[in-house]
Design a protein around this nucleic acid. Structure first.
Lengths: 200, 200
DNA sequence: CTTGCATTTTACCGAACGGTCAACTAGCAT
DNA sequence: ATGCTAGTTGACCGTTCGGTAAAATGCAAG
């Protein structure tokens, strides 16, 4: 059982950096199998299809973030609006360190995959949508807490949360187009100026 | 000469909606040729490579926008900040009409291609960067005009312009993840709340 | 020792990929 | 009429694509 799990996770480990640094269509099963030291027949024993593999990869990235930077950023001990700063900083430092190692800014794999596959595969789109949905909730809770604490003026927390998430993805997109994480550093802090007023 | 030009533009016309609605890697030369009624050898008479084709497609989209919605939106007769509203509206209506025809929100082809190929092809990345750069300039000029007119408080026009462009791309990304142009309608107007203060 | 199941191996499928090549056609200028 | 050239044709290149099937292996419980 352990060895089996090991094969499966070796496949995922080989797939993760490849889907992140290239694209869904550009990474082949064969390449992943070679890198993981696994036979193709063995691959299809664990994953019914390429789509199932990328879904597992999405889950791994999501867990990694949820238990890493996101948990740190949305620490209830921090003043609410500082959590948002923290998250933007985390995105910046992460992309920066990736560039130092890899030579390129890879951006957000959820955003990358969304724009690539969401017109072609509704199941993947739904998976990615769920990820964004959770992220939005984090922002929303934080904004509501900030409003309750009087840190910021009342607003539409739901829409502002979505706007902030959109902005973060957009900033990472522009940074990737320049292959320069410093874009995140320069533009990121403006996320807190975004506001959608509460409906009357 | 006319017939020759016609073949070339038939190829581009066949490629445009395909690259927009799917992805760079997912659209093959063969399919484009079949749709355009052109032989593959003829394709390679006009385009040295697939990359050159997609660059021509990018140019066509850019021209289309520059002479269409962008020219309308950045009309000097409009009050500066209304131009930005106009552009967001244009993005919304365009995506909405695409969805009505196509059944799906296709998003911004420049953003789509950026996230797909910019780690793999620096020439394409540079091409897309140039598009974003021009878009940013439009925002920047508008913001400077608005500041000069006293419509908005002084700010860092360059960074705010980039932030607004990022936000617009991010909003379209989130809308695509939900396959729902109404996201643009709901979140778009908040673009004017974005501010990067001028350096001291 | 045997049965049964999970895992792995190997060979294979048809289709599509981007790209090349040589032969051919048509139109125009000399 | 002839030669040049832009354009076109259709066959072909080797490679890779995602996915399949059957046989072989290892291992653990009865």
């Amino acid at each position: 059982m352990n060895i089996a799990t090991d094969t499966r996770s070796r496949i995922i480990a080989a797939a993760k950096p490849r889907f992140h640094s290239r694209s869904y269509a550009n990474v082949g099963i064969q390449e992943i199998c070679e890198s993981a030291g696994v036979q193709k027949g063995s691959f299809y024993h664990f994953f019914p299809s390429k789509r199932d593999l990328v879904m597992a990869v999405i889950d791994e990235f999501a867990d990694e973030w949820a238990h890493g930077f996101v948990a740190e950023a949305f620490d209830p001990a921090l003043p609410p609006m500082e959590r948002i700063d923290y998250l933007v900083d985390a995105a910046y430092f992460w992309q920066k360190s990736i560039k130092q190692v890899h030579g390129r800014m890879l951006g957000c794999i959820f955003g990358n995959l969304t724009l690539e596959v969401s017109t072609q595969d509704d199941i993947l789109r739904a998976k990615l949508l769920a990820i964004f949905s959770r992220a939005k909730s984090r922002f929303k809770d934080t904004l509501e807490e900030a409003v309750a604490a009087g840190t910021i003026a009342p607003l539409d927390a739901d829409l502002t949360a979505e706007a902030m998430l959109a902005y973060l993805e957009g900033v990472i997109l522009l940074a990737k187009s320049q292959n320069d994480p410093e874009v995140i550093y320069r533009l990121g802090p403006a996320i807190k100026t975004l506001r959608v007023e509460a409906a009357a």
